[in-house]
Write a protein that binds this DNA or RNA. Structure first.
Lengths: 236, 236
DNA sequence: GCGATGCTACGGCCGGCGCCGTAACGTTCG
DNA sequence: CGAACGTTACGGCGCCGGCCGTAGCATCGC
């Protein structure tokens, strides 16, 4: 029954408030240093270092040495997915937190931000809506599918879906297309390999840019146009 | 930042070994008493009662009074899904536990068991494979979709898909069709509303029966025939 | 080299909580 | 109504682990 122990270990590691803060901060997919993570959690670097060691040993995080810095990131997409589902349960049983006041205060964060490796906020939801409306993807509350027309559309904007389709086996592996509940909009945006590919492509083409110190994502004028004209998305 | 606190609370509640054992036992969707759960966790009923109170207050469980018994069950499908994803991460980072020795020892459990509200084990995987093969559902590693032919097929075996399709909005709600990684077979079986409906129908029609004291599910002779001839599934 | 910086290792304090035993309460049944 | 059973409430013990301070190790810049 060692599987039980693993399970409990993962949950315990995620369950400490300080560690949860750090995991939250890492949900945008970036790699951060111990000092940065200590700051967001409100603890000293020494303490944070201990937490990070435990989470790395437990399989939640992976480390990357670079000079005198050690960058920490979420170990796998599965870990990000796990954190998402816990957040979803947390969101569901907060009946008091109604629509208007939910989520981050920062308007920039509400407009567009990164969620592990894909877009969230109004941008993420609007893109998902547009792709669904045009029949490029099909989404239910917890399942998604990329259609033939979607494959063609992604090809048009320079995304090769070949490698993704390769892995359409039923084994474990990268998610092809999947909804992810947006915690500010309370509606799903696009995650999985398709969501990640769109995010990557947007960054590469200069449609969006990361802002250094936050999860917020900046939509450039070129991006505004592309998202509106090519995707058909309305980000009000 | 109360969302952080909720998150941490949920994870902490799931993180204790004793509580994790109880949650595991409840993963088959049944409602169990404090005494039964105490037995599977290896603690006294008093201690178990305390754990159950906390998990109920925390939103993981719901209670149902019946005479002098109090039955505890998982509060929502989201909770079951959350536990699944944690299990999935746990399974992924166990490199040593290879195919043959993984999962439960009990052969009956490996053959067919309940996973919250749907089938798992070789039965669950075989049914999922058969439905995919005949084009009734489409499954990737983390997304699923019920096809038109699938709707027709379910109708033939007496399952009305109307209510499910009703809720195909993009809001939160019940899952229509979704894969769930099988921890003994390491391949997905069918979860979501479709998986649950098939399980319910099988129980009602006497194709399968629950065994009292375990998660194992008994496939009746009638069930063997139906699954083989109507579903086209091969449970070797 | 030397100091500054980022990070980790170790020791000590202390609060939280998991566990049990005892006890009280409610339900069921004879 | 009283005994038996399931469950919850309370008190006390013990340990795990989060926190910080100090100290030690690597890396970078001068």
């Amino acid at each position: 029954m060692t599987s039980n122990a693993r399970f409990a270990e993962l949950a315990t590691l995620s369950g400490d408030p300080a560690r949860a803060s750090m995991l939250f901060a890492l949900m945008d997919g970036r790699a951060l240093t111990a000092a940065e993570l200590a700051r967001v959690a409100g603890i000293t670097p020494q303490t944070a270092s201990g937490h990070l060691s435990r989470m790395t040993a437990g399989g939640l995080l992976s480390v990357e040495k670079q000079g005198r810095h050690r960058y920490h990131r979420l170990a796998t997409p599965s870990v990000a997915h796990m954190l998402e589902t816990i957040m979803q349960v947390a969101a569901e049983l907060d009946p008091d937190r109604q629509r208007p006041i939910v989520g981050p205060r920062d308007p920039a964060l509400r407009k567009a931000r990164a969620c592990y490796d894909h877009f969230a906020g109004r941008l993420g939801v609007a893109l998902a809506d547009a792709l669904v409306e045009r029949g490029h993807v099909e989404l239910t509350s917890d399942a998604g599918l990329l259609t033939e027309s979607g494959i063609a559309f992604l090809g048009e904007i320079g995304i090769d879906t070949g490698p993704m389709l390769q892995r359409r086996t039923l084994r474990s592996g990268r998610v092809l297309c999947r909804p992810c509940l947006d915690w500010s909009e309370r509606r799903p945006h696009l995650a999985g390999a398709v969501g990640a590919a769109i995010c990557t492509q947007s960054m590469r083409n200069g449609w969006t840019r990361r802002r250094d110190d936050t999860r917020a994502v900046l939509v450039t004028p070129a991006g505004e146009r592309i998202f509106r004209e090519t995707f058909g998305a309305r980000i009000e």
